[in-house]
Amino acid sequence: MTEKHLAYCWIARGERVLFLRRAAGVFRAGQWELPGGTAEPGEPFQTTAVREAAEETGLRVRVTGELGRAEWPDIAGRDLRIHAVVYAAEETGPADVVLNPAEHDDFAWLTRAQALELPLPDHFREVLDR
């Protein structure tokens, strides 16, 4: 079985956390998620989280801790096991969010309660429920 490793950032401003909406035409279109993505071969997961946050949002962050891990079988039925880790991250300087339109079409700074009202993949709901 093949494995895929994902790493995400929990970027907070006060009580609100940054969520991104998947763009039309991409996998999980219309669903909301934390900034993050797939680890490159041999790439440390914390590095993945920081790199993906910059690519998807334009924000520069540093990892401050681990919030949770999850794993699940591929939802498309492929012989693939997904492993994900969510890191707490803080911005290293003031910046505006600039989305990569090939991946996301909207963003919002949300409280936990607000985020739970959105269409979210289960692994993000698990982090929010902690």
Rank of each mutant, 00 (worst) to 15 (best):
M1G: 11
M1C: 05
M1W: 01
T2A: 15
E3P: 00
E3T: 08
K4T: 13
L6T: 04
Y8V: 06
W10V: 04
R13E: 15
G14N: 08
E15L: 07
E15D: 15
R16Q: 15
L18A: 05
F19H: 01
R21A: 04
A23D: 05
A24H: 01
G25V: 06
V26L: 04
F27R: 01
A29F: 01
G30W: 11
W32T: 05
E33H: 10
L34W: 07
G37R: 00
T38N: 14
A39F: 05
E40Q: 15
G42I: 01
P44F: 07
Q46T: 14
T47M: 08
T47Q: 15
A49S: 09
A53P: 00
E55P: 00
E55K: 04
E56A: 00
T57Y: 08
T57Q: 07
L59I: 00
R60F: 05
R62T: 14
R62P: 00
V63W: 09
V63H: 02
E66I: 12
E66C: 15
R69A: 10
A70G: 12
E71I: 02
W72Q: 13
W72M: 08
I75G: 08
I75R: 11
A84I: 01
Y87C: 07
Y87P: 09
Y87Q: 09
A88E: 14
A89M: 09
A89I: 10
A89F: 05
E90H: 02
E90N: 06
E91Y: 01
G93M: 12
G93V: 04
D96Q: 07
D96C: 04
V98H: 10
V98P: 02
V98K: 12
L99V: 05
N100C: 07
P101A: 11
E103N: 03
D106R: 02
D106G: 04
A108L: 07
T111N: 06
T111M: 10
R112K: 13
R112M: 02
A113C: 07
A113Q: 12
A115W: 09
L116W: 06
L118N: 03
P121Q: 15
F124V: 12
F124K: 11
R125E: 15
E126D: 12
V127H: 03
V127C: 11
D129K: 13
D129W: 12
